[in-house]
């Protein structure tokens, strides 16, 4: 599974992109975020407040209960500020 981090999530996590292999019980976005949080202090900082984290699975906005699997691209980023 590919995980991408953008904006301040990237700065806090200390990484822009990583390939991870979570255990099979990590089957939803919510479970993935909880699992990622435990990977490093940087990850924990990036994911400390999930109210300001948006998630996309395969480039579509996704909610915490959305399923994720080994071949997915999951992106984590703050609320958008374009325009």
């Amino acid at each position: 599974m590919k995980v991408l981090y953008f904006a301040w999530l990237k700065a806090r996590a200390g990484i822009g992109e990583e390939t991870v292999t979570p255990p099979p019980e990590v089957a939803t976005v919510g479970a993935l975020l909880a699992w990622l949080k435990a990977r490093s202090p940087g990850h924990a900082r990036a994911l400390a407040d999930l109210a300001v984290v948006r998630v996309a699975v395969n480039q579509e906005y996704a909610t915490l209960d959305a399923p994720v699997g080994a071949n997915d691209e999951v992106a984590l980023f703050p609320p958008v500020t374009g325009g």
Binding site: F6, A7, A56, A75, F77, P78, V80, T81, G82, G83
Partner: peptide
Amino acid sequence: VDWLKTKAPFWK
């Protein structure tokens, strides 16, 4: 304009 500001993944 309103929608792209809240949906398009850009960060300033």
